[in-house]
């Protein structure tokens, strides 16, 4: 049975992200935001399609998520390469990407058609680690600009909430798979609703950040 939180909230959140990036691009004309806006818009349609495949045709939609995680890992590596400062940190980002793509490819192929919790977990962890590296950079390379007027800070705060939370959700799901009864599997599916709620919070944080910065700039 279709549930908005479990099935369609994810697609809605990506659409919201797309809108936020588009508005940010109109405001600041940053190229990486334009790329993210287009990508999120496309992904919102793809994820919606993935939901419909699972609901209408009871078909396996894992292959759609594999493509999404693979492309998103590359996009996030590109984005963090822009916001992180320092050649050594950027190198770490690139090497991590190669490892993540390698693990995703290997585990996706070997686990298909089943859910690939190891590969997906490492994907989420990759972005959470990049977010933590960015926060460390904020504390080390201090300048006069107010951190709350930095859109990337709001965006990556949201990313940390979603991707770190998703990593734990994936671990939990992986642990309980094969150990639960049929009745408990329904409850386990609620984990996906929680993951989507985290994504909603993450997108709202980015939207709030954008509006807050606009409001502050108009005030001054």
């Amino acid at each position: 049975m279709a549930s908005f939180f479990r099935n369609f909230l994810e697609s809605f959140c990506y659409l919201l992200y797309s809108l936020v990036f588009f508005l940010q691009y109109l405001n600041e004309h940053e190229n990486n935001k334009r790329v993210l806006a287009i990508y999120y818009f496309v992904i919102s349609i793809v994820i919606y399609y993935a939901c419909r495949v699972a609901l209408d045709y009871s078909d396996n939609n894992n292959w759609i998520y594999y493509i999404y995680y693979f492309s998103f890992a590359i996009l996030m590596s590109y984005y963090f390469n822009q916001v992180l400062v320092g050649e050594s940190v950027k190198k770490v980002n690139r090497y991590l990407l190669i490892i993540v793509l390698g693990v995703l490819l290997f585990t996706d192929i070997t686990s298909y058609p089943f859910f690939n919790s190891i590969g997906d977990g490492i994907f989420f962890l990759f972005i959470a680690v990049n977010s933590l590296i960015y926060f460390k950079q904020l504390l080390v390379k201090v300048d006069q600009k107010n951190i709350l007027l930095n859109f990337d800070f709001w965006l990556i705060s949201g990313y940390l909430v979603y991707f770190l939370g998703s990593f734990f959700i994936i671990l939990t799901y992986n642990y309980f798979t094969g150990r639960v009864t049929e009745a408990q599997k329904v409850m386990l599916a609620d984990l996906w609703s929680i993951q989507n709620i985290l994504l909603l919070i993450s997108s709202i944080v980015s939207l709030f950040g954008f509006l807050w910065i606009r409001f502050q700039k108009k005030l001054h």
Partner: peptide, 28 residues
């Protein structure tokens, strides 16, 4: 558990902002 996780992250980010502001004052 989910709420506890969110609150922990939120507290972490607030602490980060406070430390950053303190370092900013020193920088200026």
């Amino acid at each position: 558990i989910s709420c506890a996780f969110l609150i922990t992250i939120a507290i972490g980010i607030v602490i980060l902002v406070l430390i950053h502001q303190k370092k900013q004052i020193q920088f200026v």
